[in-house]
């Protein structure tokens, strides 16, 4: 059994909305409230919404554990890779090697209150994105494991 058609349709419509809103929070982490973790949690809640609206077995085509694992590990590797890349350019681990260089994400920002520009803040947007992907994968996986176990009847195999 699952929830009624109305809820499922609403979930279908809300899912892309939650996704784009989560990505908005992730990518604007250095300008507005939010950041990688918060946005990732929002996106993961989208997956959780799908898991509640549909049966887990109905979703296996679109929401796969394998993909989520890859997202999780890949996000973390991107994160630590960004941090390690600082060693190559002569900084210290976690040195913000993109900030104020004028290149990608490196536009210097004016001091004081200003509307904000997305190409600032150096590695922070990159790390935000990495953490966002990781949290999306991780939190979705947790609920997927639990729901999957629930639908298999929870018996010992």
């Amino acid at each position: 059994m699952q929830l009624s058609r109305i809820v499922r349709t609403a979930a279908d419509i809300l899912y892309p909305f939650i996704l784009i809103f989560g990505l908005y929070i992730v990518i604007h982490g250095h300008l507005t409230p939010g950041g990688g973790f918060q946005g990732g949690a929002v996106i993961a809640t989208g997956s959780v919404l799908l898991l509640v609206a549909f049966r887990y077995s109905e979703l296996t085509g679109d929401l796969r554990k394998g993909w989520m694992k890859i997202f999780e590990s890949g996000g973390l590797l991107l994160f630590i890779g960004t941090a390690l890349a600082a060693l190559l350019v002569g900084g210290v681990f976690f040195f913000n090697w993109l900030a104020n260089t004028g290149s990608l994400f490196g536009i210097p920002v004016a001091f004081g209150p200003n509307p904000g520009e997305i190409y600032t803040a150096g590695v922070i947007p990159v790390m935000n994105l990495a953490v966002g992907i990781e949290v999306w994968g991780g939190l979705s996986l947790i609920v997927m494991y639990m729901m999957g176990d629930l639908e298999e009847g929870g018996e010992r195999s």
């Binding site: 929830l3 809820v7 809300l14 909305f17 939650i18 809103f21 929070i25 507005t32 409230p33 939010g34 918060q38 929002v42 809640t45 959780v48 919404l49 509640v52 609206a53």
Partner: peptide, 16 residues
């Protein structure tokens, strides 16, 4: 933004 997050997500726990 916080309010939008709230409006979108509080629904999930209700559904559960």
């Amino acid at each position: 933004d916080v309010a939008i997050v709230y409006a979108l997500l509080s629904f999930v726990s209700t559904l559960y």
